[in-house]
Design a protein around this nucleic acid. Structure first.
Lengths: 352, 352
DNA sequence: TCGTATTGTGAAAGTAGTTGCACATTGATT
DNA sequence: AATCAATGTGCAACTACTTTCACAATACGA
């Protein structure tokens, strides 16, 4: 950066004017007060030296860096879409994201796990104007949120609502509606014995809890139904759990997995048990990730519109940053989702 | 940011010392010269006020922001991995990425295409210390590279080498080796009539050109072979092209697609023509994207280690930024790749 | 008791840029 | 000829912080 970057001083010198004069002409303040000759000299010098304003300075002066922090979990295609939405919305108002991970996807040899607090400080030290974050596991991380809250840095969370004292806005999926869609679809197909397969940390992620709870409630509304609840453990292999579900009595004729990723385990377990999908078991996922239509059979799932989630979250954040929304309370937006019916669901077998 | 962020001045005031004293104690410079009482007062005040240094100031003072620009194409899982590698390597030395897109994945209504030059300026205005970029289409974009080069901002490119006058380092895949792996695999299976399916902009991307060229060369080394070359056009449907390939005479018994994404079209075309994979046609892809093992049949493809690409690119960049590598020339690193044999390739049918 | 060394601290200048205010010059009006 | 306004430009101060230099206060030996 150093050597090649010309400063306003360089431009002023090249145009034989003072620094304030160059500043005013380039910023278009009081330009009418300058002679045309002066204006042209400054403009020409700036172009020739490829002058670019230094946003760091603007940052320390105005307190606004036009940069927002984004903290995300390891990617799937849902999160990629969210990042697109965040990026596009930020760019449209000349903001820029600094994207950091809060968890690792895989264990890469030699790379130690991230210290969440350090990641938060990396953003704060660069004086981001606000943050969009996927809040990792609950109470352990509350100090991290305190870091933002105590400095009045606006925060928007995705997929999880923070306790209201942090005053963070949130964008979540309408889990109740999602549960209704899945439950109704399965009930209409005649399924009475169903199962729900949750992911590790069922109790840590609020969306995970809600996804299970609402589904259970919807199923329970109909008499004569049963719903098995299980959870893939940290050490417990997903396939094993799925096999346990599929060998229970009465055997569930449909399995609803809390995420498309988990349906892979269900597919594998079904294959091992010689159960056909969808003839013997129907399978429903959640998210509609990019591989879901490619699965064989293609997966029935609930689509979340990641791009819109990203856009919405960014709009909430920007309205806080730009002071268009000041009230103390926090806003929580529920995004709609819709059922995408593919080939992994079919009417319940009569002879189950 | 503004209100909640306490400055060094605040800390100094709270500790009843001057700003320089607070600075020295917090930066650990000449700490021995301060009385223990003074040190404790400053440390305690900083902790209480949650003081965090302002990297913007360090940026304007030292010319180093500990921030690098990353400009990427729309994601597939290969690029996600690259971003992980970049992120992890940067974080390990307390740097941070600003990731911007240079192209859109889909056409999202109302979002206009990015002005590449504006994206470059967004990074330069924030005084990034260097850039890792996927250089979009060739000569049209050379002014953009000039923006970096003229300011001595180090650049590392991925998947493409810039003309040497820009002095950019690069990380690319060893295309020649990849071509050999695929060609040898197919030749060993007895395939003599093969085809290559390239992507839009065959001539715009150097990796695409090389991928085709080296494959042709390897196949041509064996007598009695033929190799059909085609390219998915901007308007030409990939499935149509794949059908054209699969109905040529002599009909190719193997199709090598320049990217895993293109193999979907080949699979669909084969299904429409009632050709079985791999019994009637073998299919090979390139990249080993996340969905490739899930395809039915699972895809034989060449694996690129995106994570390592990202790490390597970042290491090159950091060595430039930190002045450990100064020479004028540019370094170009070729990353190894390996063949992952799955179920989409089989010996050539005798009766073809 | 004076000079020197050591200890502890602050003033000032610099990084890049913006903005309020001052001031000189010129032209028009009284 | 004196007054006023308009025009054109620069000084100084401010943002947050680091660093060099200077200086006061105490301690110690001669």
């Amino acid at each position: 950066m150093a050597e090649g970057m010309s400063s306003l001083k360089d431009v002023a010198q090249a145009a034989s004017v003072s620094v304030p004069t160059a500043s005013r002409i380039l910023r278009r303040k009081n330009i009418t007060r300058f002679s045309e000759d002066t204006r042209n000299r400054v403009l020409e010098a700036a172009a020739r030296l490829r002058y670019r304003p230094n946003m760091l300075v603007k940052g320390i002066q105005t307190g606004l860096t036009h940069t927002v922090g984004v903290m995300v979990p390891p990617y799937d295609s849902y999160w990629s879409s969210i990042l697109y939405g965040i990026h596009d919305t930020l760019i449209s108002v000349d903001y820029v994201p600094i994207t950091l991970w809060v968890q690792h996807r895989d264990d890469h040899a030699g790379i130690k796990p991230f210290d969440g607090l350090e990641q938060v400080h990396r953003l704060l030290d660069r004086r981001i104007d606000g943050t969009i974050l996927w809040p990792p596991i609950t109470p352990d991380y509350y100090d991290h949120h305190e870091e933002f809250a105590s400095r009045n840095v606006p925060v928007v969370t995705i997929d999880h609502e923070l306790p209201s004292k942090y005053g963070a806005d949130s964008v979540t999926t309408d889990e109740k509606h999602g549960a209704q869609l899945v439950a109704n679809h399965l009930l209409e197909l005649g399924h009475r014995h169903v199962a729900h397969l949750g992911d590790v940390g069922l109790n840590a992620y609020s969306w995970s809890q809600r996804r299970r709870k609402y589904f259970e409630q919807e199923i329970a509304k109909v008499a004569g139904t049963s719903c098995i609840i299980s959870e893939r453990g940290k050490d417990l292999d997903g396939v094993e759990i799925a096999k346990k579900i599929l060998t229970a009595r009465p055997r569930p004729t449909a399995v609803y997995a809390a995420s498309d990723l988990l349906t892979r385990d269900v597919y594998l377990a079904a294959a091992e048990l010689n159960l056909r999908i969808p003839q013997d078991v129907s399978v429903v996922g959640f998210a509609d990730l990019d591989f879901s239509p490619l699965m064989v059979p293609s997966l029935t799932t609930v689509r979340q519109e990641g791009y819109e989630v990203g856009c919405k979250a960014t709009q909430l954040l920007l309205s806080r940053i730009q002071g268009k929304f000041i009230e103390g309370g926090s806003r929580s937006i529920k995004m709609d989702c819709k059922l995408v019916v593919r080939d992994s669901t079919a009417p319940a077998a009569q002879n189950s």
